[in-house]
Design a protein around this nucleic acid. Structure first.
Lengths: 181, 181
DNA sequence: GTCTATACTAAGATAGAC
DNA sequence: GTCTATCTTAGTATAGAC
């Protein structure tokens, strides 16, 4: 792996940002190029098609998830707490990648949908041994999905009805009481 | 209220179906007209703009939600069980309307986003007196959001990782144990 | 490696025939 | 009330200059 070309990443960041803040419809090649400060032609040098742009976003997501799954498995306060706590959008890199991908999925991209499903399965695999039974695993996964869903509805940084701070701590405690192995 | 014009409803059903099955991107005026068996011009007689089409969908949703909220409040096995059970997509009219609206929301429609947020608030208002505390209400709402999120990721009828049948009964029991007032 | 210019396609919308 | 024809705008993509 050589050091990554900067312009490429800048374009990818811009694409991600537009997906998150303005939706899939607005994330056109032209808008992405403008936001990244390059021309349409310049963008197309780095990514030969819109499909290639999406593929690059998914690749970046997979790399981030790999790290996250490892961190979750090694978390000191347990995978359930780690998992739920990181399910509220903190606007860090993995959250943004997931949010952007779910915009693509909702926009109709089958590949994005499959990617999200696969990531969910990876998380579930880690949590399985830490939850009481299949029902408890369902509970934890669905609460996490719910947190992501609410984040996805909001623009990305607008505060929604998602519990934060002490409310989030209380929720985690309630879920752990019900689900922990 | 006079009897509803049939062609109008047929167009609205087609729009909804395309949103659900193919995503927001695919739900164009032309595709909607084709699916409804009318011409582009014919569609535009009923709905003067794409905006008008979306408005009609939201209006229909609001009417369906009004009925649903009443049914939830009057449900014999309690609002929590009713709420969670009806959060799994059964492909009935309200589920389809919500799913289509969430496609629009993810596509960038601020109006659709506000509508979904408002509906969520209506449900929460009914559930508030039936849940132990604010944390318990969060739990119930998030599990429901999670169920909808999974339904939204799938095409609408493709079975996802959402619990069904006995697994769903077990989940409802677990949530009620943790959250019921 | 990045830009301009442009071709091609499809979208939303209007006008007016039937 | 529904259709055909057409205008305008915007999206993806190509060719080729710099």
């Amino acid at each position: 792996m050589s050091r990554p070309p900067l312009a490429r990443d800048k374009v990818l960041d811009a694409f991600e940002a537009i997906l998150i803040e303005e939706g899939e419809r607005a994330a056109t090649m032209e808008a992405t190029a403008r936001a990244a400060g390059v021309s349409k032609g310049g963008l197309l040098y780095h990514f030969g098609s819109k499909d290639a742009l999406e593929s690059a976003l998914l690749e970046r997501l997979h790399a981030l998830v790999e790290d996250d799954v490892a961190a979750m498995a090694a978390s000191p306060d347990g995978p359930i707490a780690y998992f739920l706590r990181t399910s509220v959008m903190e606007n860090d890199r993995i959250d943004r990648a997931i949010l952007a991908t779910s915009r693509l999925a909702q926009g109709g991209s089958a590949r994005a949908r499959v990617a999200l499903r696969g990531i969910r399965d990876q998380w579930a695999d880690v949590l399985r041994t830490h939850t009481r039974d299949a029902t408890a695993l369902d509970l934890v996964m669905l609460v996490s999905d719910g947190l992501y869903f609410n984040n996805a509805l909001e623009g990305g940084s607008i505060p929604g009805p998602v519990p934060r701070g002490a409310a989030m701590d209380a929720l985690i405690a309630m879920v752990e009481r019900a689900a922990k192995a």
